[in-house]
Design a protein around this nucleic acid. Structure first.
Lengths: 99, 99
DNA sequence: TTATAACATTATAATTTTCTAATCTATCGG
DNA sequence: CCGATAGATTAGAAAATTATAATGTTATAA
């Protein structure tokens, strides 16, 4: 990786590095959801969700499809789901995470 | 993942989400290196490297072994290297990254 | 014992992120 | 057209990150 590539990679990682945004990715693993479903399930405000979804879209992690007055969000790159296993294992092994 | 786990995961991802820190992980894939080797190869200051290494250690990504006046850094969890392929592919596929 | 090489810490200014609250826009049903 | 629902945008304060510069610490070699 050259420096430019590392900078772009850092941007993508930053886009994931937030509890709400991780929650979105996790929920979307189950299939398309509307913005409202997402913020209700994650217990954050509508405004917060809208802002976080924008970040996820900008980094190509989520795509949005409009249907009437609603918008359906979907995972654009399911590869990133692998990351969750990796992280769970890491937390348990290296950071003494319990429960 | 519950919320606590998402918060901890976010911390680990943040620890990777920086060009210098990604560079460290990439270089360490090749084996142990001293701090000086790392900052020289990445072209950043010694102080910068020391601070970034601290972050990587705190999140369990890098371990440090002392030997005389030097310190040898190593990747603690080589699982994270998989991430680089995933990222390269993502950049090319979803973010139109060229070369 | 002193100079130096390797690394850590601290302080700080500049920039980014994060979160909340308020407002705006678009679409649909009636 | 009107009200309601779904979502976006904007503004701003607080907190976190980033980068640089200066200074501290420790171990070794001479």
């Amino acid at each position: 990786m050259n420096n430019r590539e590392r900078e772009m990679t850092a941007e993508v990682l930053k886009a994931m590095a937030h509890p709400v945004r991780l929650g979105v990715i996790e929920i979307l693993a189950d299939g398309e959801k509307t913005c409202t479903e997402l913020f209700e399930q994650l217990g954050c405000s509508q405004s917060m969700m809208s802002q976080q979804l924008k970040i996820l879209c900008q980094q190509g992690l989520v795509s949005i499809r409009k249907e009437g007055t609603q918008k359906y969000c979907a995972l654009r790159n399911p590869d990133f789901l692998k990351l969750f296993d990796c992280m769970s294992k890491h937390l348990r092994t290296f950071l003494h995470f319990k429960d």
